[in-house]
Write a protein that binds this DNA or RNA. Structure first.
Lengths: 196, 196
DNA sequence: GTCTATAAAAAGATAGAC
DNA sequence: GTCTATCTTTTTATAGAC
């Protein structure tokens, strides 16, 4: 049963995957429905049969991508017990999925422009992700991090490092060892623990 | 003499500033030459008289913005003696220049797509910036940072934090205290220094 | 230096045939 | 479910008048 759907669902998912690719390659603004359609052997109107507008297509692509990430975070049997090692594992996974990373980097940055259809999505996503990450940090390291940093400060920093490293890695994959650099950052967060 | 140029130079700079605004608001792909022209009271063709193509216009905008940043870094009389406090001051400055930050965030992320006209610019910019920043860290903190982190690792992390915080700040200015969070990160880098 | 005119291409979306 | 046809707008860029 798992992974199997009726033809209608397959077609939709096929289009969503193609859209993710094209958005990654050209951004949302630069992507055309026709170019997405071409990848799945349809015309522009064929795609518009499944998704009424480009905006709606983007919305569903973002939900798909988010679900994938949650799958990875929860996959290693860490039911409810996410640690910074789990997050590091996600970074490691991302380093092997350039397309996914690129789509996220391009779309999230693009979303800051006025009236962008993905703005609400990313605002909510980062807001809840920070709250969640602060608790992960607190549970693992405690209320006091090196240099007087709090878990509430560490949370946005963790996502900043992830996003910022992704950008540099996309521009220079051979120079940037994304997983190693993220682990280096984690060791900064934990440096005081061993000493105290 | 300073700040004064002939009419031709003024016109060009006027266009460049308008272009920076529009690129920030819509990204490069989403910006039209006509919308830039409108802001300076010209037609599309009037702008194309000064810049032969949209690509060239972008190239000059990026150089302008980079120069501004260098001005700020060098401004406080720190001739040759840049420290992490100087970098923190730049972050503080950026927190009052939303348009500049937004243009940089949108354009740098957009530049990772294939054949983007700003790709070379950002590749070179990050490459040299990392090398420079590694020396700043080494001069200020030394070869060993907390958690066994090296200056060569700290450098990309510093830019990752700057860029990543900018994205979160653009999406939620009221939730993200960019300067405070950057200083928190700097205190992570320096945490081992005071203790040793 | 700035304009009008114009080309030539591509975009999102709708209507309707099959 | 997918197509052709079509509309309407917008895009970059060129040619040439003034």
């Amino acid at each position: 049963m798992a992974g199997r759907r009726d033809r209608r669902g397959d077609r939709r998912e096929e289009i969503l995957l193609a859209a993710l690719e094209v958005f990654a390659e050209r951004g949302y603004t630069g992507a055309s429905i026709a170019s997405i359609a071409e990848r799945v052997g349809l015309t522009q109107q064929g795609v518009l049969h499944y998704f009424p507008s480009k905006d709606r297509l983007l919305a569903e692509v973002l939900m798909l991508r988010d679900q994938r990430n949650l799958d990875v975070i929860m996959l290693p049997g860490n039911e409810g017990a996410v640690t910074l090692d789990t997050v590091a594992a996600l970074v490691e996974y991302n380093a092997q999925r350039r397309g996914i990373v690129q789509s996220f980097t391009v779309l999230s940055a693009e979303s800051v422009i006025e009236d962008h259809p993905a703005k609400d999505f990313f605002q909510e996503r980062y807001g809840s992700a920070r709250a969640w990450m602060a608790e992960v940090v607190r549970a693992e390291i405690g209320d006091e991090l090196p240099g007087g940093v709090t878990p509430e400060q560490a949370a946005p920093l963790i996502f900043a490092v992830m996003d910022g490293l992704q950008l540099q890695w996309l521009l220079a994959p051979d120079e940037i060892d994304m997983p190693a650099l993220f682990r280096a950052f984690v060791s900064l967060l934990k440096a005081g623990v061993a000493a105290s």
